[in-house]
Computed example of a mutant assay.
Amino acid sequence: MTVRKVVFGFGSPTGYDDVPELLRTVEQADRDGLDHFSLPDHPYLGERLDAYAAIGFVLGRTRHIAGIANVSNLPTRPAPMLARTVTTLSALSGGRVVLGMGAGGLWDRIADLGVDRLSPGEAVDAFEEAIVLIRSLGGGGAPVTHRGRHYRIDAIEPAPVAVPPVWTGSVGRKSLAATGRVADGWIPGHAADWLSERYRESRPVIDAAAVAVGRDPGEIRTVFNLPGRITDRPSAAPRDRAGRWVGGSVGQWAEELTGAVLEHGASGFTLFPSGDEAPEVTVGRWAGEVVPAVREAVAKEYGAAPGSP
């Protein structure tokens, strides 16, 4: 069995007033060996930075870390143009980008931008079609003509570089099944963790859809968004009343995340710092203490460093 590399990242601040903190924290995370930074994509919010402009700028100031829009607001970013954006970023950065994909949720705000409103079913159909189309527009080859329900292109040449890995923010069963058929990773919605009912009920939908089209479900990684704090001392309540992980000491984090990998199939974690500490302090402890401990424990269990990303 090939053991997938466990990836670790963090959620970056995204306001215009947060620019200095964003740059400091991502550059620090790059030096400290984190795998990715994450930015939300809400183009209808004027106080937020544009996700892809920010990702491109930050990738130009770093050497190793990858960027992901968590997740791309697909209705506002037509699939053919999104394909051009991510393949360009991949070429410029040496492959340091992940394509986060979402069907769109806040339709009242999305429609405020002049985008035609879709029903939930239509939005998921467009989401799956977009992933397939975007994949066809990378990796070279013959010009692509596509006549779909939501997208039409005529004899468009693919970019000569491959489309980056696609991680989705799927929530409903139809969207989860689409993830199983066409995506490379899944980010459980609403900060669900490995012990949550949402995860237990949702992941089998992805796996069954993958098997139905001849895919190995193990090819589809699960990357958890984790709002949480890292405390100096062990916490008496590392989970909230709803049972969701909220953080604790370095030792508690390491034990919990190692268990998530070895017992529940987790293959990635994105920390969203919470609490009173400055984000760069929390990210420093995450990268310098928690992540090495989990990597070491997982490698020890498998007898070697995990394999390819």
Rank of each mutant, 00 (worst) to 15 (best):
V281M: 07
A254Q: 11
G268A: 11
E256A: 15
P279S: 12
V283A: 03
E255R: 10
D276W: 00
G288M: 10
W245N: 02
V281G: 01
G275C: 07
G247C: 08
A260W: 14
F269S: 03
G265D: 09
G259Y: 08
F269W: 14
V246P: 00
G251D: 14
S267Y: 06
P279T: 10
V250A: 03
T270P: 00
V261I: 12
P279G: 09
P273W: 03
T258A: 04
G288Q: 04
G275N: 01
E277L: 15
L262Y: 10
G251K: 08
V283T: 02
E256T: 15
G248C: 05
G275P: 13
A260S: 13
E256C: 02
S267L: 06
A287G: 06
V283F: 11
R285C: 01
P279K: 13
E263T: 10
P279E: 12
G265Y: 00
Q252C: 06
G275L: 08
V246I: 15
S249V: 02
W253R: 01
E277F: 09
L257V: 15
E280R: 14
A278K: 15
T282D: 06
S267A: 14
E280P: 00
W245D: 00
F272M: 15
P273Y: 03
Q252I: 08
E263N: 12
A278W: 00
G259F: 09
L271P: 02
L262H: 09
V246W: 07
E277Q: 14
G284M: 04
G288H: 11
P273M: 01
D276K: 09
G284C: 02
E277C: 02
G275E: 07
A287K: 13
E277T: 10
D276P: 10
V250R: 13
E277H: 11
S267I: 01
G275A: 06
G259V: 11
G288I: 13
G288R: 11
W253Y: 03
H264T: 05
L257P: 05
P279W: 13
E256R: 03
G288V: 14
V283L: 07
S267G: 14
A260D: 06
Q252V: 03
W286Y: 13
W286R: 04
G248L: 12
W286S: 06
